[in-house]
């Protein structure tokens, strides 16, 4: 008799637990859905300001950057993502020669977004922005010249 009871009791317990599960999914069936419809929601999409999608150089109104070509970012980068090409120009007023930035090459494809370059920059000449739609068909397009 006892055996019989556990047999039926087991079935009852099973049915109860299964019904609880079913009631949960049934409730979810009618709750609002959470799918984010990217790219249709581009306009309302909020990406955090701190998101690191791509390195860029903030420019002032005249298109000048603040880079002094010190090379700290290049030497701090673990992946060799940044290449700085410099040229020497002679200052007209003082007559001293000075190293200035010619090209700031950034390889998005090998960047691991560790932020060491931004942290180390003495002039805050580089920063990360959150333009994350960077898919291209050719890897060469990921090599970007940052200064104008």
């Amino acid at each position: 008799m006892e055996q019989k009871f556990t047999y039926i009791g087991k079935i009852a317990d099973t049915i109860k637990s299964l019904a609880t599960g079913l009631s949960v999914t049934m409730r979810e069936f009618f709750t609002p859905k959470v799918t984010e419809q990217y790219p249709e929601n581009r306009k309302t999409l909020k990406i955090s300001d701190r998101h690191r999608a791509m390195l860029y150089m903030p420019l002032d109104e005249e298109g000048n950057n603040r880079c002094i070509a010190c090379g700290l970012c290049q030497s701090n980068c673990p992946n060799g993502t940044i290449t700085i090409k410099t040229k020497t120009v002679v200052d007209e007023e003082t007559g001293k020669s000075k190293k200035v930035l010619e090209e700031y090459i950034y390889d998005l494809g090998s960047c691991m977004y560790c932020q060491l370059c931004v942290n180390v920059c003495p002039k805050d000449a580089i920063a990360f922005n959150n333009s994350f739609e960077n898919a291209v068909f050719d890897r060469n397009k990921l090599i970007i010249k940052l200064n104008k």
Partner: peptide, 11 residues
């Protein structure tokens, strides 16, 4: 299936 899972399914 999508509705049970709080999704929209194919759209």
């Amino acid at each position: 299936c999508a509705a049970f899972q709080c999704r929209l399914g194919p759209m």
